[in-house]
Design a protein around this nucleic acid. Structure first.
Length: 198
DNA sequence: CCCTGATTCGC
DNA sequence: GCGAATCAGG
């Protein structure tokens, strides 16, 4: 893959929105996060500070005081970040890019991708599996929607309409959207579902 | 371990 | 210009 105008544009857009290099890489496809980062630097649109807030979980600015790298020795590192001139008082803290509106006004839509959340309905599920879940939920990482990744259990817990709502977040089972315990209640073998009829 | 961005340097 | 390898850190 090469950096066509379209791809560069998407890169700029996503980077501007605070997306991580790896997320951008996945979106673009055919490139690694390294490639994305490299491109970002070459484009000179490194520091994401345009008066906008982090927008995402992690979006800090790293500072390199002087870490002695084994290979290169002399590294001219003058001004890390100028940003002096510009008398612009501009008190407005939130510029509003006018395009990023991930979450509309909606009430509380649950999350996710596609097959997700069947809350355990207390019945129809093997007692063992239920016990397991209840046990695991205590150890859950209680992630917010934004914190979910491909490797975190996406099992929702609690009432979305309440503050007491979170996602399990434990390590998922290979290829599944949930952790082991939740996979247990999410994927019922047809056989065991039968005769459990109340 | 998972992840983040930053930098270097051979291609 | 590109990006893997590496570094530094959360």
């Amino acid at each position: 893959m090469s950096w066509t105008d379209e791809r560069v544009e998407l890169l700029k857009k996503m980077w501007g929105e605070g997306q991580s290099a790896s997320q951008i890489a996945k979106e673009l496809g055919g490139v690694t996060r390294n490639a994305v980062i490299g491109k970002v630097h070459r484009l000179g649109l490194s520091n994401r500070s345009s008066g906008a807030a982090p927008a995402s979980t992690k979006a800090e600015t790293k500072e390199k005081p002087a870490a002695a790298t084994p290979r290169a020795e002399a590294k001219p590192k003058p001004a890390p970040r100028p940003e002096p001139l510009r008398a612009a008082p501009d008190p407005a803290p939130a510029p509003q890019p006018a395009e990023i509106k991930p979450i509309p006004a909606r009430k509380q839509i649950i999350p996710a991708g596609q097959p997700l959340p069947p809350q355990p309905s207390a019945n129809e599920i093997s007692p063992e599996a239920l016990a397991k879940v209840n046990e695991v939920e205590k150890k859950a990482k209680k992630l917010s929607l934004m914190e979910l990744t491909e490797r975190t259990c996406k099992w929702p817990v609690g009432d979305p309409a309440t503050e007491d709502f979170w996602f399990c977040g434990l390590p998922v089972q290979q290829g599944k959207p949930y952790c082991e315990a939740h996979v247990g209640v999410a994927f019922q073998p047809m056989s065991s579902r039968r005769d459990r009829r109340r």
